[in-house]
């Protein structure tokens, strides 16, 4: 399937992925992040139960302490 992650097209050899599987495959390691799938904010507790499908739009941002 093809999805976009932060406006970049990415291809995965799968029909669907949970948010956590996608994060592991992409080796996104920072501990605190915001994930939106098709504009909907996905809470951390739902990373294992929320699926990403072909053509989905994933947006991520990392939250760093400091201000």
């Amino acid at each position: 399937m093809k999805i976009t992650i932060n406006n970049r097209e990415e291809e995965f050899d799968r029909d669907k992925l949970t948010v956590n599987e996608m994060l592991e495959l992409k080796r996104f390691t920072y501990k605190l992040r915001i994930v939106k799938v098709n504009g909907k904010l996905i809470p951390r507790e739902e990373y294992d139960s929320t699926y990403i499908y072909n053509k989905d739009d994933v947006q991520m941002l990392y939250l760093m302490s400091g201000g």
Binding site: K36, G39, Q59, L61, Y62, M64, S65, G66
Partner: peptide, 15 residues
């Protein structure tokens, strides 16, 4: 990010 969410900074440098 979208019409309701924007981020400023490098999203990398933590204090």
């Amino acid at each position: 990010i979208d019409d309701t969410l924007y981020v400023c900074g490098d999203e990398e440098s933590e204090v």
